[in-house]
C-alpha cells in the first residue's frame, strides 16, 4: 500500500538563546491512507513539532516528508496550496482556534470562500452540512467564540477542518482542554467520523486511554524519537519498550 505520508529520517532543530534544541531526531514513519494513527508522548517528545512539519508549516532540517511521493519541502506555492486542500487541522484550545471577531459561520466557511472560491449559497449549504455532521446546532453559527462553550467550539473546529473534504485530518490534543463529560462527546464525534468517512486521522495526545479509543495504529514518542510503534493492540497490550510500559502504568 502506498503511504499517504512518508516521514524519512526527519530531524528538526531549534536555536534558543544560542543553544540547540533537537525537537526531532531522525524520525521515520509511514502513514497509510484511511487509518487512524495515534501519536502519544509527553511534553518535549516532539509530537507537536511533528504536527507542524506534517502541516507543512515548517521544514525539516534534515530528512524528507513525502506526501503521496512528493517532497513537502520542495513544493512550490501552487502545489503546497493543493496539498493544503487535502488537509484539515484541529487544535488544543477551542477558544483560541477562532478569530474572536468572526462569527462561527464565517470562520467555518473561510477555506471555502478563499481557497475553493465557492459561491455564497453553496457555502451556506456546505457549512450547515458540516455542522450537522459534528452535532453542532445551526443557531450557534451566527454566534461569536466568546459566547460558546469549549465543546461547541471544538465541534466547530472539526467542522471547519472537514469542510473541504480533506484526505488527512491532524488533531493536536483535541480533548485535553475540555471537561471530562465533554471530552467523551468529542471522542464519540471523532469515532463516528472515523467510521463514516474515508480519511486518515492523526491524533496527537498525551491521554493514552483517549488514543486507545480512536486509533488503529500507535506511535510512542520520547525526546524527539519514536520509541515504539505498531497496531493499537500491539502497542498498548504488549508493549515492548520500558518507556511505553511506564507511560501505560501512569495512565490513571
Amino acid at each position: 500500500m502506498v503511504s499517504l505520508l512518508s516521514i524519512q529520517d526527519v530531524t528538526r532543530v531549534y536555536r534558543l538563546h544560542g543553544k540547540k534544541i533537537w525537537a526531532l531526531k531522525e524520525i521515520s514513519l509511514e502513514i497509510s491512507p484511511n487509518q487512524t494513527l495515534g501519536i502519544a508522548g509527553e511534553s518535549g517528545s516532539g509530537k507537536s513539532t511533528l504536527a507542524r512539519l506534517l502541516m507543512g508549516l515548517e521544514k525539516p532540517d534534515q530528512g524528507k516528508i513525502l506526501y503521496k511521493g512528493n517532497d513537502l519541502a520542495g513544493m512550490n506555492k501552487k502545489t503546497l496550496r493543493a496539498f493544503r486542500r487535502h488537509l484539515g487541522v484541529v487544535f488544543q484550545q477551542p477558544q483560541l482556534s477562532f478569530d474572536p471577531r468572526w462569527t462561527l459561520e464565517r470562520s467555518i466557511e473561510e477555506p471555502l470562500r478563499f481557497i475553493a472560491k465557492t459561491k455564497k449559497e453553496r457555502r451556506s449549504l456546505l457549512v450547515r452540512e458540516a455542522a450537522a455532521q459534528v452535532g453542532l446546532s445551526e443557531e450557534l453559527l451566527t454566534m461569536f467564540p466568546q459566547q460558546l462553550s469549549g465543546g461547541q467550539l471544538q465541534r466547530a473546529a472539526i467542522a471547519r477542518a472537514l469542510i473541504m473534504k480533506p484526505e488527512l485530518l491532524i488533531l493536536d490534543e483535541p480533548t485535553s482542554a475540555l471537561d471530562i463529560s465533554i471530552q467523551a462527546q468529542i471522542l464519540n464525534v471523532l469515532r463516528e467520523l472515523k467510521n463514516k468517512l474515508q480519511m486518515t486521522f492523526i491524533v496527537i495526545s498525551h491521554d493514552l486511554p483517549a488514543l486507545s479509543y480512536l486509533a488503529d495504529q500507535m506511535v510512542i514518542m520520547r525526546n524527539g524519537k519514536v520509541v515504539e510503534s505498531g497496531t493499537k493492540d500491539e502497542t498498548l497490550r504488549r508493549p515492548q519498550q520500558e518507556y511505553t510500559k511506564m507511560l501505560l502504568a501512569s495512565a490513571l
Binding site: 462553550s149 465543546g151 461547541q152 471537561d179 471530562i180 463529560s181 465533554i182 471530552q183 467523551a184 462527546q185 471522542l187 464519540n188 469515532r191 486511554p209 483517549a210 486507545s212 479509543y213 495512565a251 490513571l252
Partner: peptide
C-alpha cells in the same frame, strides 16, 4: 454514574463511550 462511564479507561474494544448530553 454517567461521569464514570464517560472515561475511555477500561473500555473493551468496540464499546462506545456513553456521553452525557449537553454541557455542565
Amino acid at each position: 454514574r454517567a461521569l464514570l462511564a464517560s472515561r475511555p479507561v477500561n473500555l473493551l474494544s468496540g464499546q462506545t463511550l456513553k456521553t452525557i448530553p449537553g454541557t455542565p
